[in-house]
């Protein structure tokens, strides 16, 4: 796939919230904050499959690699990505708060490109 621009929405999820109490170094939390949800329509259009590894790059060139998972049928409109708050989403924030004290942490513009197909990795 070619590099494409998306809007990333990090947010709370039940598993991420429970994972905070169970321990941030435990599997449940780590798995939840490292799964990028992609709209099924985008996955089909781009030829992506569950578990593929993609690279997200933010507006100042900060980038992360993350595995993808299909979002529920109508959860996300095409062009929107979702990830639970955590390590990955924080790494995509810039240091600039635009005078507000808070970096833009939702609605971030990112580019997405394929790094490795899950079928190759396994």
């Amino acid at each position: 796939m070619n590099r494409e621009t998306f809007i990333l929405i990090p947010g709370r999820t039940t598993d991420q919230g429970c994972g905070v109490s169970e321990g941030k170094f435990r599997d449940k939390y780590q798995k939840e904050v490292r799964a990028l949800r992609v709209a099924p329509g985008d996955m089909a259009r781009l030829g992506l499959a569950e578990g593929d590894l993609v690279r997200l790059t933010g507006e100042e060139g900060q980038s992360v690699e993350v595995g993808i998972t299909a979002a529920k049928k109508d959860e996300l409109p095409e062009g929107l990505l979702f990830i639970a708050y955590g390590e990955i989403s924080s790494r995509l924030m810039t240091g600039d708060t635009h005078g507000s004290g808070i970096p833009t942490s939702k609605g971030m513009e990112v580019t997405m490109e394929l790094v490795q197909k899950a079928s190759v990795a396994t």
């Binding site: 941030k24 900060q62 708050y85 955590g86 390590e87 924080s90 790494r91 924030m93 810039t94 240091g95 970096p103």
Partner: peptide, 8 residues
């Protein structure tokens, strides 16, 4: 864990 890279 939660801050931007430059802040961390």
């Amino acid at each position: 864990a939660n801050f931007s890279q430059p802040a961390r």
